[in-house]
Design a protein around this nucleic acid. Structure first.
Lengths: 213, 213
DNA sequence: ACCTGAACACCGTTCAAGT
DNA sequence: ACCTGAACACCGTTCAAGT
């Protein structure tokens, strides 16, 4: 029996199969609707099997959230490298990437940000991934700071403000709380840009030739 | 047997008793840890009783979220009336009130904003309360807009930006995602003010004497 | 009108036993 | 090392019956 037929007693990579199976379920029925037993059935395995790979339902959810953070990290790093010489574009691109990710994956974002997954304990896979993503965003802001683009706020304040803005906008969009807003990429990019203008308008120095945009 | 001893067969106001009992449980164990049966026990009633008052666990959670929105409404309206002549102070005060509410009641905020309570169907108690709160915030921004304080953005953009900022900051704080940030009212007000400076700095016109602060 | 208590179908989780 | 299947304690929800 070839690999194509995975009827073998041992499921090749049950761990990843479970994670993959969880995502559509999460999208359709939300966190409260996702069940361990259902996941087992979906991956063609008995209901006890998942516990070889995840100690807990929470552990499974944490693994999914960690994947999400890794996507955010990747996205920040790619924006930073792509616009190495234009820190503002890099920031805007990362912000819009963040926004698109949250809108495309609202349930994963909920997992990451809703706090359902208790106060992230230090050292866990999830904690690592989250801290890493935060740091990757901060690096982008430091880029602009070092280029002397921003007004006299310290980096901490700038990061807090930027993160708050993009995070808030993303979550509002993800929960459909912005009346009459389209969710296609075009509209979202336009909205992101408008909000970015207000934010950057508040962050930038006024004296120099900040006419980069 | 006097009213103090509520051993009577009929619980006087079970509905509100259930809602009150739910809040501390929510704070301690989160949404996933709250059970209908537990709530029944806590209010001294059999496990079937709550279903006379809430068709569903979801209905109970929606009622709690609706209470939260009503608190936000109240807070906006009080800020608007208190600073009727200073639209910026009104906005800042409402924003900080929002922030304090979310930090003090993170689990309720999660209920309100996490989207666990499916796409808010029109006409429900929850939908009404949410729309009302949103509108009350918008009224504050309109106040400043009419006073000609803001730069040439339309009201929609200004509202989106303000709401995103305060909502994002609140949720980040509520889930402890802002490293090394204290949660006492003093620190929170200070943080809120710093972020408000950046935001308003981006929103305000520059020509006139916007030295209100 | 409101509450009780038995009942039902379903969870998450554990664990001896199988391969 | 990994999976099965029975078992356990616990859910949310329903409903006839009580007061």
């Amino acid at each position: 029996m070839p690999v194509s037929e995975k009827k073998s007693y041992h499921h090749k990579d049950l761990r990843n199969a479970l994670l993959s199976a969880a995502i559509p379920v999460l999208k359709e029925k939300g966190v409260m609707g996702l069940g361990m037993r259902e996941l087992a059935t979906l991956t063609g395995v008995s209901h006890g099997a998942p516990y070889r790979h995840f100690s807990d339902k929470t552990a499974l959810l944490e693994a999914i959230a960690a994947q999400g953070y890794r996507q955010l990290s990747a996205l920040c790093n790619s924006a930073r490298e792509r616009y190495r010489q234009q820190p503002l574009q890099a920031l805007e691109e990362a912000g819009i990437g963040y926004l698109l990710f949250v809108v495309d994956n609202p349930e994963i974002a909920r997992l990451m940000f809703s706090g359902v997954l208790s106060p992230v304990r230090q050292g866990s896979e999830l904690g690592e991934a989250a801290a890493c993503a935060e740091h990757d965003l901060l690096r982008i802001i430091e880029l602009g700071k070092q280029a002397g683009l921003y007004a006299d706020f310290d980096s901490r304040e700038l990061t807090t403000a930027s993160l708050s803005m993009v995070h808030g906008l993303s979550m509002l969009l993800a929960s459909d709380r912005l009346s009459g807003q389209q969710h296609d990429e075009r509209s979202l990019r336009a909205l992101g840009r408008k909000v970015a203008v207000i934010l950057l308008n508040g962050m930038l120095r006024r004296d120099a030739g900040n006419e980069e945009r």
